[in-house]
Design a protein around this nucleic acid. Sequence first.
DNA 1: CCGGCTGATGTTAGTGACTAACATCAGCGA
DNA 2: TCGCTGATGTTAGTCACTAACATCAGCCGG
Lengths: 186, 186
Amino acid sequence: MTTTRAARTRALLQETATRLFTEQGYDATTVEEIAAAAGVSHMTFFRHFPTKDAVVLDDGFDPAIAGAVAAAPAGLRPLARVCAGFRLALDHVDLPEQEQVRQRVQIAAATPSLRVGIYANTETTREAVVDVLIADGADELAARVAAAAALAALSVALLEWCHDDGADTMRTRLGAALDVLDGSAA
Amino acid sequence: MTTTRAARTRALLQETATRLFTEQGYDATTVEEIAAAAGVSHMTFFRHFPTKDAVVLDDGFDPAIAGAVAAAPAGLRPLARVCAGFRLALDHVDLPEQEQVRQRVQIAAATPSLRVGIYANTETTREAVVDVLIADGADELAARVAAAAALAALSVALLEWCHDDGADTMRTRLGAALDVLDGSAA
DNA sequence: CCGGCTGATGTTAGTGACTAACATCAGCGA
DNA sequence: TCGCTGATGTTAGTCACTAACATCAGCCGG
């Protein structure tokens, strides 16, 4: 079983969409267009992606984050703990297909409605992180604030990273963003 | 000039919308419905609010924030500075019509797509705060991260505040959220 | 008190994201 | 090979939102 048919269709749709978005812009590209270019119907598109923006916004490496936070030392205050966890995640996850990700982030950065979506997209991750913190006795408000702040920092760093092109590695950027929250920054 | 006709229409639309959203839910209420209940056409609705969610999400007390950040002591690190500014804003702005705001926040809290919109809505405020920080010599990434983190904290606090109903005042809640970022929290 | 001017509103006709219901087709196991 | 199941297609909608153009309300100079 090389890859299921569904997985192939999904990948094809994602590639096609990314290409069209890059060529002519996100807003100027309709779902119908993507589907046609991929040789399927628009219904197939929506069976694989719940919304048009999901094609761009599904980075898929969010879920690992909560685990990393759990692995970080439990004694810290919520914000420090979350930052420590994120740093662990950065070191362990090996950020696959950087170019793929970068291309998608670039599309998102260029499209106001998608930029917004980046923050929106972190909601499930945020809840997962919150659960970890609460399980270790953190106040609920503190947990939510810490998780939200750290994820916002990550999102900002991602946008910044693809903005001034290639100067830093993504890891460096994300690390610097966390420093701002941590107190390690001047 | 008591109030211009346009302002009256806008207010009427906002009240009508808020009422209908509370009664039957945001998603179950169409713009057409709101317009009809207010005795206007749907075009009039969109002339006063750019989108359906703007009726709920326009709190309008965001713009004052950037000014308060500018008034905060310039020597602090970006995150501390932003937090200090927000505290100033909380003390000086007198949070008008709390009930109106609370009702809208409650609608937003109950509607996934709107909860997302709360974060989205802070983008212009964020940029204003970023400008203030950069003008005082902050690193661009640091400025963006600090602003985003603090605004995320505020949004979280708002949601939490209307969630466990009436226990704290909104000011208290927001202050506690800022403490988590500041380091004043255990 | 009147004709006109301007901004607020209405009408109509569209586009595009998304959904529901139902038909069909591809491929794999019995 | 038959049939079953999941992947896809078709069709017909709903709803947010927009563009173009018609109309109407209210104030302003005459």
